[in-house]
Computed example of a mutant assay.
Amino acid sequence: MVEAHSSVGELACPDCAAASRRVHSRYRRHLAELPVGGRRVVVRLTVRRFFCDTATCSRRTFVEQVEGLTSKYARAGPGVNVWWRAVALAVGGRPGARLCRVLAAPTGRARLFGQLHAPPVPSRSPRVLGVDDFAFRRSRTYGTIILDVEKSAVIDVLPDRTSETLAAWLRLACPDITRACDLARVFHDLVRHRRGHLLLEWIRQAEQDAPVPIRSFAGFLRHDLDPVTAGLTLTYSSGVIEGHINCCLDDQEADVRPRVVPTPPHPCPVAIVTVTRCRRPDPNSRSLIRGAGTGRNRG
């Protein structure tokens, strides 16, 4: 047992911040602390209750708090609370209570479970989510774990590994993903049922409150609104505009494509002659045969 008291002469009111010296009363608080030398430590702290003399303040009295040792309604110091939370996360309730008695920091399972409060909400939602399944009991019960990939931190654990459970979690936890899924479902309906007349309305909705990638996609669709509307309206794949462009490209390719004239077979087997855009030679021409023979003798 450690006896302690505060030696501060005056304290500020937590509401109006006015300094006060008038003491209303005193009482003792018993705070569990970290063990020393394997023995349990309890701090018996004498605290004071002060008057607030400000007439406009709604608080009439307030109790002093020792920084680093006490907090409102706490029955343990911050150090031993860290121990209890680690034990509760590692082994749970009753096993944790037995382990705490061995560590000379005894507590009950209800207090251990009270340490498992919800983690603080981050200032921004995670940009990259990791989803994987794991086994509560191998080959029997499986769950889903959701991670923040950038911070390597666990966000939530789902009781099963079905896609319906994950989709419901995403709708509640991530409004942006919910909005993106709704817009994607509507766009899929436009494409499947060829409702091109509703495309402009879809683009307007996407540009108002959609996430940035969907908004950029809607901007590209607005830039090519006529061809996309034709593709979502007509029964054949290429719309009127795109089909006309394809026909023009085919005509241009036909104009610039080189013409290949087939080489006719030559009756003389001793020479190879390539003829392009000329008349078929006379088989009885002696000059051609004589020239071919001369070339062979020279080679």
Rank of each mutant, 00 (worst) to 15 (best):
W202H: 00
Q65P: 09
V121A: 14
V47F: 10
T141P: 08
V47W: 05
Q115L: 09
G143W: 07
A86K: 05
L69V: 14
D15L: 09
S125I: 03
P267D: 12
S6K: 01
T229E: 08
P213S: 00
A110K: 04
Y236L: 09
R195P: 04
I146Y: 10
V42A: 01
C16P: 03
V91L: 07
G239K: 00
A218N: 03
P213Q: 03
G68S: 06
A18P: 00
A86I: 04
E242T: 15
N284P: 02
L45P: 05
R257H: 02
D282E: 13
V128Y: 09
N81H: 12
D160R: 02
A153Y: 06
W202V: 03
A74N: 07
R60N: 00
R59T: 10
T162K: 15
R127Y: 06
V87T: 10
R59W: 01
D250G: 01
P213I: 02
A206P: 05
I245F: 15
V228N: 05
R161L: 11
Q208W: 01
R185L: 08
T178A: 15
I146A: 15
V154M: 13
L166W: 08
R140S: 14
C52Y: 02
T276P: 01
R39T: 00
Q115M: 15
Q252F: 06
V128F: 10
C100R: 02
R26N: 05
I146G: 15
G295C: 06
G196L: 06
R127M: 10
D156K: 01
I203W: 00
L129V: 14
P211M: 05
A19C: 02
I272M: 12
L129Q: 11
L103N: 08
V91R: 01
V42F: 00
A74Y: 11
